[in-house]
Design a protein around this nucleic acid. Sequence first.
DNA 1: CATATATGTCAACATGGCTGACTTAAAATC
DNA 2: GATTTTAAGTCAGCCATGTTGACATATATG
Lengths: 164, 164
Amino acid sequence: MADLKSGFNPLFLREEDLRQGIELLFYAYRDFTGRPDAILTELGFGRAHHRVVYFIGRNPGITVSQLLDILKVTKQSLSRVLSHLVAEGYVFSRTGTRDRRQRMLELTEKGLELERKLSENQRGRIARAYREAGAEAVEGYRKVLLGIIDEEERERVMERLVGD
Amino acid sequence: MADLKSGFNPLFLREEDLRQGIELLFYAYRDFTGRPDAILTELGFGRAHHRVVYFIGRNPGITVSQLLDILKVTKQSLSRVLSHLVAEGYVFSRTGTRDRRQRMLELTEKGLELERKLSENQRGRIARAYREAGAEAVEGYRKVLLGIIDEEERERVMERLVGD
DNA sequence: CATATATGTCAACATGGCTGACTTAAAATC
DNA sequence: GATTTTAAGTCAGCCATGTTGACATATATG
């Protein structure tokens, strides 16, 4: 607690401070995924389905290879999950307009509903944390997380983040 | 990018802002675990082994149930990983002093070495991100992540975070 | 026309979650 | 002191989701 309250100089990066940073990330991620995971289990889905639904919802018309690029999994892994979602009517694909080899992925009405239900909890959690922590803290959260991302990925991630 | 640079008022929590918060967490976690995962694979271990080694290293003498409480997995899941680590000489256990039913877990020399190798990368990553982001940002990172953790967990987490 | 690319698919394998059932040893309680 | 609860371990089986490798098809591109 001490350091969390007192403020400290991060140029003195004690191993202790770094380990707190590691652990906070672990605990936050653990709890962040907890509830959506529970909802998904009831539907016979897993976290991988959530990620796919999330990023298609966020980027309607995204292609398979773009999705692979975000998720960093093999196409075989993605395929299993994606086929499942298509089969159950959460996702559909249209042939690419520019390039007809591509599949442009979109959520169906059912998919949109699921996406909303799943991310609702996470958005609420972030909203609460943001409100409690304040504007400056939010800016810090964003800066540090961005710094944790692989250097060669940052540009790409930042481009994707500006959805509006 | 715009928002990341310009600063914004998080009391206006637009869905857009919240989704950026979600995605940053996803990308950071994805890259945070990437390299250690690769090292582990070479040794025939997985991420679960990392977590166990990490938290035993951080809390020498931790009991099995305390570890379960941190990881939030079943004892059968933990058992598989833990037995493996014990069999290969990374972890050993002593009978509890207060309560002889307990097993107090510790890293062997070999375990300490592995732990160091694995967390080195993550500590370096955090250190870099902290340095680039600055002291205030670090404080914000900590505040927001703590706010993301389940409310009923926060107390316990904070107690565990003060290792020194 | 030849080659490269985007996607899909089949098969096999490993990790690591889960549930459920049951055991043992020690502590705690009545 | 007998009973109950707790800490830990184990066996068996199931499922989700990651991997590699091989191969097929349609379309773009040189």
